[in-house]
Structure formats: C-alpha cells, structure tokens
Write a protein that binds this DNA or RNA. Structure first.
Lengths: 203, 203
DNA sequence: CTCGTTTTGCACCGATCAGTACATAACCCA
DNA sequence: TGGGTTATGTACTGATCGGTGCAAAACGAG
C-alpha cells in the first residue's frame, strides 16, 4: 500500500508534532483550538497536518490517547511500586498530582488535566472521546483499588469501606484538585486537600 | 436616556430568554454554543438578542451570573439552616449536589455544573469569567467554613484541621463529583463519594 | 391619526472555520 | 540521471462564525 522507500521523507518528527498539538488542546480545549492554531503550535503546514492526521478530530483523539498513555502509566507506576507501603504510594500519587498542576502553566494559571478537561468539554457529545476516557478511568480505578486493598489487608488503611468505592472517592478528589487549580488554588491549598482526602482512609 | 413608554414593547420575557441561553451554555460550553444556537434556544431573532444582550460574551456573563446566583443561594440556604446540626447540613448539601446531577441531563449524560464547566473551559483566558468564579468561590467557601467551625465547636465534627482547609477540601470533592458525573458515574457512586468525603471530617 | 421610539425580521458583512486541490519540491532506487 | 512516490506550500472551497444595517412593524402619547 505505502512504499516509504524511494519517496520524499518527512522533515518533521511525528511524535513531536503530536506532542505540540496535545499541549495546544490541553491549554485551550478542543473547540477553541483552530486548525491554524495547530499549524502554529506544531510548525507544520496544513497539508502536512491533514496528510498525517486526517482531521482535527482524529488528531485530537491521538493527542488524547498520548496524554492518557503517559499520564496513566506514570501514575500506575507510582501505585505499583511494591517496595513502599500502600499509604506512602497514595501520598506519592497525590504529590505527583499537585506537582503536575505546576508544571504546565499558562499566564500564571494551571491548564489542569486534559482528561478532566475533555470529560467536561466533550464526554457528553463525543462518543470516541467518552470511550477513551471510560477505559482510562477503569484502568486508574483498578490501580488505586489494588493499592487500597493491600493497604486494608496489611492494616495500613483503617477504613472498612469497599476498596472500589474508596478508589472512586480518591479519583474524584484528584479531579476536584485539577478544577481547583484551574480556579486559582495555590500549592498549599492543593496539598491540604490531598492530605484531608487521605484522612478519610484512616477511619 | 431610554423612554420605555411610547415605544414598541418586547414580545418576550428577558428572564426566560436568559434562562434558555444559560441552559445552552451549560449543556454545550461557551465555544460550542453559536449565536444561532442561542437564537434557537431562546426563540429570539438575532436582532432581539443583540439588542438585549449586546454580544455573545455579555450574554454569557449574564447567564453565568444567573446560574451562580441561583445555585449558590440555594446551597447557602441549606448551609445556613440553623435548626439542623452542622453535619446534617453538610450531608444535605451533598445530597443536593447529587440530586442536581440528575436534574438536567442530555443524552443520558450529566451536563455537570456551569461553574465547574466554566472554570475548566474559560478561567484561564476570560478575566471577567474568572473574577465571577473567584467571587462565588469565596462565598461558598465562607458558608462551608462557617458550618464546619460551628460543627467543630459543638463536637459534631471531630477533625481538628483548619475549617477553611476543610471547606476547600469539601468544595474540591463537590467539583470532583461533577466531573465524575459527566464521566458517567451513577447515583450510587456519587453518593458513596460524598459519604466518604464526610468521613474525613470525623477524624 | 400622527409622531417618536423601540422592537423585530431579513439580508448582509468581513473573518474565520475545517478541509481540499494541485503543482512543485524532495527524496530513494534503478 | 531519470522515474516513481510521497511531502510540502499555496491558494482555494463552501460553510459558518459573531456581529451589523436597515426598513418595516408595533406600540404609547399627544
């Protein structure tokens, strides 16, 4: 079908372009990011973008997939660090969330989390995005649940609530922290929120 | 300046039109709601909309203000119900939040909360919206803090954390519940999240 | 009924939207 | 060096964007 030999090679790195597009969608949302914005962000011409990614919507899906892959594998890695006790792992997860809100900023404001942003903006009317988000949510909930279960069985976590329920709770708090950050909450505020959330596991 | 007498009267109710516009922005977001959508939602012609609300942006500000007014006064009323003990008031607040996620729906999905949606979509690049949201947040945090303080002094709330910090926490959980609802969480899931959040106040 | 004022409907504005057509450039292989 | 193939830049498409101009309609006051 394609003969990549004996033809003009690309002058750009597809992964880098995808990364730039991802940041554009992340900072401004799907609707507010125009195809021209994507050209500017990636440094590519319209032809190259459409030749490589087919459409704005497919480019968005690839950008979202990339974000989900990197963020969730990052978090799962923290959660599956068998060398540390469960509560320490959860604390590390929250610390990671707080840090992430101060990594990518724009005009002194957090740009939040692409997963949360997309859930709010698109989940209700973009079936493909909704399904990607649902699958990712399941993965994250499973990872958190596993840590909580092990914490409950070793006595590190006192709460007798269902591990899955506690995982949903922690996940909701993380989402709420993202929103709070976009609403202007500073590092201290986010830190206290996460500490308080962990209080709920110890009763 | 204006002589409303001896001129053609309006054929529509401004508050009803504003309400329809608010629901359109609420369900679809600012960017995804076109002026044509606003005409369809309100039943007004373009002239009437621009004559009454000046611009899409000003109409949005009025819609957001209307939403904030009604939602926050609703919640503050629950929180200031001096006849009930503090924890009961907080529980009632969360019950109200859960219910609200199942009042206005679209295609089996929650449309969330306009305050959260706007924080995510616009807070970073719309100063007027950001300021309205910040003022509203301060009001809600103050109301929650007051309830928590009274709960701490009467022994209804065991946590010795700063009341303001606990309020930030509860507010974040509420935001996280809105996001979870948009991500597909059902009533039982939201209920457990709120119960777990309240666990944190009793240790 | 006429005048002054505002509302309303309709046509229209330039700008921008996502996406495409096509010629040419750039490359590998023979 | 010439031919096959893909990448790229430029110009363009129809549709829609937010917003406006304007004339007719609709009313109250005199």
């Amino acid at each position: 079908m394609y003969r990549t030999d004996m033809a003009r090679p690309r002058t750009f790195d597809e992964e880098r372009a995808l990364d730039a597009a991802m940041h554009a969608f992340w900072a401004n949302g799907y609707e507010a990011t125009s195809t021209q914005d994507l050209c500017d962000a990636t440094g590519l011409g319209r032809s190259s973008i459409y030749n490589t990614f087919s459409s704005k919507h497919e480019l968005f899906q690839r950008a979202l997939a990339r974000y989900i892959d990197s963020m969730t594998s990052d978090q799962v890695e923290i959660l599956e660090d068998a060398g540390r006790p469960p509560m320490k792992r959860l604390r590390a997860l929250f610390a990671r969330v707080v840090d992430s809100e101060f990594e990518c900023r724009k005009d002194e404001h957090s740009i939040g989390c692409l997963t949360v942003n997309t859930t709010v903006e698109l989940a209700g009317r973009d079936p493909e995005a909704a399904e990607m988000l649902a699958r990712d949510l399941a993965v994250r909930l499973a990872a958190i649940s596993a840590v909580i279960r092990s914490g409950q069985s070793c006595g590190d976590i006192a709460s007798t609530r269902d591990a899955g329920d506690l995982a949903r709770f922690l996940n909701a708090v993380i989402g709420g922290m993202r929103v709070s950050a976009q609403g202007g909450a500073d590092r201290a505020a986010l830190t206290v929120i996460s500490e308080t959330a962990l209080d709920a596991l110890n009763r």
